[in-house]
Design a protein around this nucleic acid. Structure first.
Length: 579
DNA sequence: GCCGTTTTCGGCCCGACTGTTTTCAGTCG
């Protein structure tokens, strides 16, 4: 059911990409992208919309795209797409991934030089064969070669957790430059995207042209890739690209908003501004009569369009502007809402710190409770707990809880979900824990149907309090296993199972794109650090970011509850199951 | 390709920088 929707979205996105390569009308390309995004947000599957005859009522889907979706849903294919694909070689899709190489130049390389892959392009550059092509010169060739290096070395993506501290340090360094009145991180880093491809920083200075030279003094620069009056582009030694934009102090708020994006958000906001007779650019807002006066901050900026402040995490170009206009923005979760944490490992299994040390670290962080969940016995690679160890740990927890000193220890387990969906311990052992996290750690290679059934069966177990890292993905490492998340969310709602937002920056799983769906279905979530050391309790910040991007509020997250309420909640599902 | 009580045609967000150009196309965000 959901696979059908995903396939349609994919199809529309692919068409847009192919049209881009063909140098088609940009607005036509955007029409396909808009249709894909709209469908993404829609609860109803395309097949259902078609059955109800309502497909073309969806904004952004007209006759042409509607017919294409119908053909694709009915036959599983689309002739138009097949023809496009036949006419635009797949190699071009690979080529436009190289920074500095867009559809036009890629097409020239393909038609004039017969370049079919990045490898061939690299070879052609080294043979000096690009020079002489219309629109190409020695600089372009060098640029492309450097772009290839970057793609090969880093795949162009970085983990947010690796980038954010660097970005903040750069902004702080620029903030200290004489004359600078503000320097802030913008872009996808500020929006809290889980992976990012570059850093954007906006700097305010009475003489913007004075900022560029200061930027060039920053430490760790490997290469300067652009240097104009107001924009400086760098690549750091780590391969991370950085863009710095300089504006006048009175332009800072609109500029910060502009460079925070997303691009899609900006397009939508400009559309709304236009309806109101206002024009936005990165330096300010103009009415028909001329530029409006200085804008104090982003809140004032949004007010010009009759909107409340939209938090950066929500600015992905979905329905955030619509929701803001209707007063339906959520009051997003904050880290200070977090009262305690679940999913913490100790030296009983593969953690680096002892139970007592983890509890002490939690206390120092001001947490009111900490839920210990070491690995279960099947996870031998992680020194999973045999039954004797389970009992021993529970005795130690009881002993430590005699003097809890403000932080209560909850006894739990991260139990493997076995291939058939059963858990790793019998019910009487499971009943001895305060909570149980069920996770898939093995036998990843199953069909989507089998994996979905396996996970749902685990959730039907009354002792399973939470589902751990629902897809098993590792960012920039491996894709998650095949699983029908829509069905998992339905099952979580039906069984009263909490879904984990695993806050390890490599996981961030459940993905923010699914969090909102879960919330709408009435599912509760837990922001879990999956900490294997005392320091990793700080991972909670990444999980909070994910929850915020998923429109979640404190109410949606169980570990914002005080201890007595959270203990009640942990008992609810098994109590219901026992009746 | 989509959309519309200003419109069924003519709009659709806007600007910086680079490189290859004799005035601007391509790329990016």
């Amino acid at each position: 059911m959901d696979g059908d929707k995903r396939a349609v979205i994919r199809l529309l996105e692919d068409i847009a990409e192919h049209l881009e390569l063909r140098g088609e009308n940009p607005f036509k390309i955007r029409a396909y992208q808009t249709a894909a995004r709209t469908l993404e947000r829609l609860e109803t599957a395309p097949a259902e919309l078609i059955a109800q005859g309502r497909l073309e009522e969806v904004p952004g889907i007209g006759r042409a795209i509607g017919d294409k979706i119908k053909e694709f849903v009915a036959t599983g294919r689309l002739r138009y797409y097949d023809e496009l694909k036949a006419a635009t070689p797949g190699a071009l899709l690979e080529l436009i991934k190289i920074p500095g190489l867009g559809p036009k130049k890629a097409m020239t390389l393909y038609t004039k030089l017969g370049i079919n892959s990045i490898g061939e392009l690299e070879y052609a550059c080294r043979e000096n064969r690009l020079v002489g092509l219309a629109g190409f010169g020695i600089k372009t060739q060098e640029r492309i070669l450097a772009g290839i290096e970057r793609v090969k070395k880093y795949q162009g993506q970085f983990l947010l957790a690796a980038v954010l501290p660097v970005a903040k340090a750069l902004a702080a360094a620029l903030a200290a430059v004489p004359g600078v009145t503000a320097a802030e991180v913008a872009g996808s880093v500020r929006r809290g995207r889980e992976t990012v491809k570059d850093v954007d920083i906006v700097v305010a200075h009475p003489d913007p042209s004075a900022v560029g030279p200061a930027v060039l003094q920053l430490p760790g620069i490997e290469q300067v890739t652009g240097s104009g009056a107001t924009k400086t582009s760098l690549v750091l030694e780590t391969g991370l690209a950085v863009d710095v934009r300089a504006v006048l102090p009175e332009q800072f708020a609109p500029a910060w908003h502009h460079f925070t994006g997303s691009k899609e958000h900006n397009v939508l906001l400009r559309g709304r501004a236009k309806e109101q007779g206002l024009k936005i650019n990165e330096y300010g807002v103009e009415a028909g009569t001329g530029p409006l006066g200085p804008i104090a901050d982003e809140a004032a900026f949004f007010r010009l369009f009759g909107l409340p402040f939209i938090p950066p995490e929500l600015r992905e170009g979905g329905d955030e502007i619509e929701a803001a206009a209707a007063g339906r923005l959520p009051r997003l979760l904050e880290e200070s809402d977090i009262q305690g944490v679940f999913h913490v490992h100790t030296t009983y299994s593969d953690g680096a710190a002892s139970l007592a040390a983890m509890a002490a670290a939690a206390r120092e962080r001001g947490l009111k409770y900490i839920g210990i969940s070491d690995h279960s016995r099947t996870a031998v690679y992680a020194r999973g707990l045999r039954l004797e160890a389970v009992l021993e740990q529970q005795r130690e927890i009881a002993r430590l809880n005699e003097a809890p000193e403000g932080c209560w220890i909850l006894s739990g387990i991260e139990s493997d979900i076995l291939p058939d969906g059963s858990l790793d311990y019998p019910d009487d052992v499971l009943a001895g824990f305060d909570f149980v996290i069920a996770s898939v750690h093995s036998a990843f290679r199953m069909s989507e149907a089998e994996m979905t059934k396996r996970i749902i069966r685990a959730m039907e177990n009354p002792f399973v309090t939470m589902l751990g890292h629902p897809t098993g993905r590792l960012l920039l490492g491996r894709d998650g296993y095949e699983v029908d998340l829509a069905a998992v969310i339905e099952a979580a709602a039906a069984t009263g199972t909490v879904l984990e937002i695993n806050a390890n920056p490599y996981r961030l799983d459940l993905d923010w794109r699914w969090c909102r769906r879960a919330k709408e279905k009435g599912v509760r979530l837990a922001v879990n650090p999956d900490a294997h050391s005392a320091e990793e309790l700080a991972y909670i910040a990444w999980g909070v970011m994910t929850a915020r991007k998923g429109w979640l509020e404190a109410l949606d997250i169980i570990n914002t509850l005080p201890l007595p309420q959270v203990r009640n909640l942990l008992r609810q599902k098994r109590a219901a199951g026992a009746i």
